[in-house]
């Protein structure tokens, strides 16, 4: 048994007592391995006595689970209405230029900081009242 399948077995066991444990399990796997890939889906199907289609259906539905790990650091930028009202779209050019190929920019719809946008998130750190200079600095330092 490989290390990975053993670890996945442990994660499944840790959630065995929960009702509807699949999302908590997938969160743990995404967190630990950076993705939920095809191999993992098969292991999960076996471990949870579901079909691989069941697992893949869930994994592919949610934005938080990715099929491949991306080694780049991520900056999540909110581009929902309230941040648009505060001009996030005008910052995207500078953000993309600063990110280049090194940083992954991902769009989120709302970080709940809607009176102080444009807002962004890196890991568990939040950033508000961003202007061109601040977002460039944020992306360069991530």
């Amino acid at each position: 048994m490989s290390d990975k399948s053993q670890r996945i077995g442990e994660i499944i066991a840790a959630h065995a007592h929960e009702e509807g444990p699949l999302l908590p399990i997938l969160h743990d796997i995404q967190h630990e391995f950076g993705c939920v890939d095809a191999e993992t889906e098969e292991m999960l199907a076996k471990g949870l006595n579901l079909t691989r289609a069941d697992i893949h259906g869930v994994v592919s539905f949610y934005h938080d689970y990715t099929p491949e790990a991306d080694p780049r650091p991520v900056v999540q930028i909110c581009r929902a209405e309230a941040c648009k009202a505060n001009g996030v779209e005008q910052l995207m050019g500078a953000a993309e230029a600063a990110a280049g190929g090194r940083v992954k920019l991902s769009t989120v719809y709302c970080l709940g900081l809607c009176s102080a946008g444009p807002a962004a998130r890196t890991g568990d750190d939040l950033h508000i009242r961003l202007d061109e200079k601040a977002i460039t600095k944020l992306i360069e330092n991530v």
């Binding site: 909110c78 929902a80 209405e81 309230a82 941040c83 719809y109 709302c110 709940g112 900081l113 809607c114 009176s115």
Partner: peptide, 11 residues
């Protein structure tokens, strides 16, 4: 699951 932009009371 407060996803609406412009809302933050639940948070």
């Amino acid at each position: 699951d407060e996803g609406d932009s412009g809302t933050f009371a639940d948070r």
